[in-house]
């Protein structure tokens, strides 16, 4: 159903030392990463980190102050961008426009003939179960369906690279699953996707690679599995005797930070240990001192933890 135009061995997207500063001082100062063919890359950062600015520069909505953007081995130009599909952060289709008209319009803008564009629109709407609503006006659709139509607008012309700004925001779990299935199908046919998200769970489940951006700079770029190795290593401990815990953690070469959650008088601590120290060593030390431990939960080595570590390092730097 989904097709990817002109598979190419060239790297679909390469961004090097991108910088763009706005009047208020926000923007990006040094962003570099690349997106491989047949991959899904998550673009992660807190609000204001520079995700949207970077995506806008890639699709040509803003002119960067400096840096290079290459699309399929060529400097980003209007012609090179014809193989690119884009979904902006806030969705805006004309409420009186009909669903199939909106999709066909975007396909025609990218060069498709009118007949092919409408055939494609009908096929895509059928693919996501909206064929019965093809002639419905956008304003008559539910928010989720309108958003799905917008995503179809981005992929209608069979792009080789999809740039999506928060594609899952506002979608219910079923719609999210459908869109994820669309993306997986697109990837399996050689297409490349770069999407920004705040959801680490979605990124971890869907992405091959992640780019973490912090303070306007690239904090990490690599495979998801590699990113998770940066997740903090340690344990959440809930305990009454704070002084004793700090003493033990210091002896093991780790550090402890209080968390703002309490169980009666017991305070929850986030204990980070050197990777050379096994978690049971901490448990043993606590037992030897006969301390009352109310909670002992190893920190998950997931993308969220990795994000905080990597983004935090970048912010500290």
């Amino acid at each position: 159903m989904l097709a990817v135009a002109a598979p190419s061995t060239l790297t679909p997207l390469r961004v090097a030392n991108l910088a763009k500063t706005y009047g208020g001082g926000r923007g990006v100062s040094d962003v570099s990463f690349s997106v491989a063919r047949g991959s899904i890359t998550g673009f992660i950062g807190v609000n204001g980190a520079g995700k949207s600015t970077t995506l806008k520069a890639i699709v040509g909505l803003i002119a960067p102050d400096s840096g290079n953007i290459e699309l399929f081995g060529q400097p980003a130009s209007f012609a090179a961008r014809s193989r690119l599909g884009f979904l902006p952060e806030e969705r805006g289709l004309a409420p009186r426009e009909r669903a199939s008209d909106a999709i066909a319009f975007h396909a025609q803008l990218k060069g498709m003939s009118r007949e092919s564009a409408y055939r494609r629109a009908d096929a895509l709407l059928e693919r996501i179960g909206l064929s019965g609503r093809a002639r419905a006006r956008i304003g008559e659709l539910s928010k989720g369906n309108a958003q799905r139509v917008q995503i179809l607008c981005a992929i209608a012309h069979d792009p080789a690279l999809l740039i999506l700004d928060e594609p899952f925001s506002g979608l219910d779990p079923i719609a999210q699953a459908e869109v994820q299935s669309l993306f997986s199908e697109f990837r399996s046919q050689g297409g490349a996707i770069l999407f920004s998200t705040h959801s680490m769970v979605v990124a971890e489940r869907l992405c091959d690679h992640v780019v973490i951006i912090s303070d306007g700079r690239t904090a990490f770029e690599g495979a998801v599995a590699e990113a998770t190795t940066h997740a903090p290593y340690g344990v959440y401990v809930t305990i009454n005797d704070d002084a004793a815990l700090l003493e033990i953690v210091q002896a093991l070469g780790g550090e402890a930070q209080p968390f703002p959650s309490k169980m009666s008088d017991a305070l929850r601590w986030r204990v980070l240990l050197p990777r050379t120290v096994p978690v049971p060593a901490l448990m043993r030390a606590l037992a030897e001192r006969e301390l009352a431990v109310h909670g002992f939960e190893p920190i998950q080595a997931d993308l969220e933890g990795a994000f905080w570590t990597l983004a935090g390092q970048r912010a500290a730097a």
């Binding site: 500063t21 001082g25 990006v28 100062s29 807190v46 204001g48 102050d65 935090g312």
Partner: peptide, 20 residues
């Protein structure tokens, strides 16, 4: 941007990011 406009240097765009 207009070409003659003075470019501002990066001004700590994201200072509110803190390790939890």
């Amino acid at each position: 941007p207009l070409r003659w406009r003075k470019k501002r240097r990066d001004a700590s765009a994201n200072s509110r990011l803190r390790y939890p």
